[in-house]
Amino acid sequence: MAEPEKIPHSVWSNPWHFIAFGFGSGTLPKAPGTWGSMAAVPFVPLWQMLPDWGYWLMLGISMLFGFWLCGKVATDLRVHDHEGIVWDEMVGMWITLWLVPEGWGWLLLGFLMFRLFDILKPWPISWLDRHVHGGLGIMLDDVLAGVFAWLAMQLVIWGWTSGFASSLGF
């Protein structure tokens, strides 16, 4: 197993690094992507107060910002994709939870779905992760994992609301 990357001191002094490191969550030991995904969850109830188009707009802005931010911080640190850069996981979580009903159960299910797709990286996520570089590459695999998790969540929601769940006794 590879040794974890050293956490740069700039995370605590450079605001761009602090944001890219998920407001510090990417500095936590073991599985920084999971910590970054968890750091995204408290924002979701705020985003859910927006109209659907407002949440969508926030996703677009945070994604475009992420392409720049992740690329800048990776260049500053002279690392392709430091494991502590977790803004990409945060955006992936926010994508996963767009148009999902309110409630902690849905947030937990979305978290688990996103982590599953982010960790397993099914094709084409794995291909993008290996072949696309810079800020775009750092962000794109997590954005796509978020889209896959979002689709899975929408299927669960559809099944739940269509009566399928009640036919199973739920």
Rank of each mutant, 00 (worst) to 15 (best):
H80V: 10
E3P: 13
L57A: 15
G24L: 06
L57P: 06
I85L: 03
D76A: 03
H131Q: 13
P122S: 02
P15T: 07
D142N: 15
S126H: 13
G26T: 00
F65Q: 03
W56P: 03
T161H: 15
D142H: 08
G26H: 00
M49D: 10
F65R: 11
T34V: 08
P101E: 13
L59E: 08
G135E: 01
I7A: 11
R115H: 00
I19K: 08
L77Q: 10
V41T: 12
H17W: 12
L109Y: 06
W160Q: 13
P4N: 10
G36Y: 00
W47L: 15
W106M: 07
F117K: 02
N14I: 01
A152D: 00
H17Q: 13
W106V: 06
L46H: 03
L46G: 11
A31W: 04
G84H: 03
V143A: 04
T161V: 10
M58S: 13
V41L: 15
Q48E: 12
V132W: 07
P124E: 06
S167Q: 14
I95K: 03
W106F: 12
M139L: 04
D52R: 12
A165D: 12
W87F: 09
K30V: 12
P29N: 07
G84F: 05
M38K: 04
M113K: 02
V132S: 09
G137E: 02
Y55H: 13
G60L: 15
R78Y: 09
G36N: 00
L107K: 02
P15A: 12
G33R: 03
G146M: 04
K121Q: 14
W158F: 10
F18Y: 14
L97K: 05
G103D: 06
I157P: 04
W106I: 08
